[in-house]
Design a protein around this nucleic acid. Structure first.
Length: 138
DNA sequence: GTCGGAAAAG
DNA sequence: CTTTTCCGAC
């Protein structure tokens, strides 16, 4: 039994993620929700499986089955009715350099989380506050 | 579809 | 700083 992990143990080959990956919106500091939090949030709920889901096989990889719907949901959350997949995907592309995500080339609408980076952004334990996530040892 | 520069908004 | 908007290039 995994501890400290929330997962999709059904139909996903035991795919599970640590709790810190699901930290999401519960920020008392009323900080704005970030896109990758939102993506993780959708991925967490079975009701959105027809819209976005984990890709079996690669850990952390997910596929957007309905780009327009994901964009609509994101736009609703951020009060940006004009949101679309073109713009949402641009935001996703900014994550490449930040090492939060990378593209699974060749596979349509498929991206993959970089959980090493996610550890960094969710754990203020490391000395990343001054150097914006330049971690070597992961 | 995907990429990434540029400008702008919050 | 993150994301939105716009867009030319491949």
């Amino acid at each position: 039994k995994r501890e400290g992990a929330r997962g999709l143990e059904d139909g996903n080959g035991g795919l599970a993620f640590p709790d810190w990956a699901y930290k999401a919106e519960s920020s008392p500091g009323s900080r704005q929700i970030q896109l990758w939090h939102f993506i993780l949030e959708l991925l967490q709920k079975e009701e959105f499986r027809h819209v976005i889901a984990w890709q079996q096989g690669e850990y952390g990889e997910f596929v957007i089955k309905d780009p327009d719907e994901v964009a609509r949901l994101w736009g609703r959350r951020k009060c940006k009715p004009q949101m679309n997949y073109d713009k949402l995907s641009r935001a996703l592309r900014y994550y490449y350099n930040k090492r939060i995500l990378h593209k699974t080339k060749g596979k349509r609408f498929t991206y993959k989380f970089n959980f090493s980076k996610l550890i960094v952004v969710n754990y203020p334990l490391w000395e990343v506050r001054g150097s914006q996530g330049r971690i070597q040892g992961i």
